[in-house]
Amino acid sequence: MTKPLYGLMAEFETADELVHACEAAHAEGYRKMDAYSPLPIEELHHALHIPDTPLPKFVLAGGLAGMVAGMGLLQWISNIAYPYNVGGRPLNSWPSFIPITFELTVLFAGLTTLVTLVMLCGLPMPYHPVFNVPRFKSASRDGFFFCIEAEDPRFDLQRTKEFLNSLRPSDVSEVEQ
């Protein structure tokens, strides 16, 4: 092995085994690790001690920005840019500005969700070392993978491999950088 190692990857048959492996590795003191599955598994979130996602905060901020932009735009149009008397209605006839304000709130919040999701996941990232494992293709089909990264201070090729093998995976492979 001349290339530096990204980590060790273990493959499991079922989601329960994967969750168990994550719990065991965390108990063993490993921290730099990730699990890969073809479907969301709520227990992994706890097993890996993943912090709660900050996504809703961004979405809230985006929605509020849309709301302010929407109401601000309409107020500016009707009071300043183009004051126009429509059937004697006041220039600030705010109830009729609500629909557009609402739509812009949703529009900004929705686009923020997409952008935040992509950024928090670190995407787009067409290349990632885990894709070097040939069997990793099945992570999007029916395979459950668990990878302990070489950056982890407790990582030791021999001992980590033994540890992973003790979890009875169907396969353990080295992940090239």
């Binding site: 994550c22 969301p40 993943i50 067409p126 990632h128 992570a139 999007s140």
Partner: peptide, 11 residues
């Protein structure tokens, strides 16, 4: 976009 089904992604 390079989706790899990581537990962090899914969260």
């Amino acid at each position: 976009l390079g989706w790899r089904g990581s537990a962090r992604h899914w969260t």
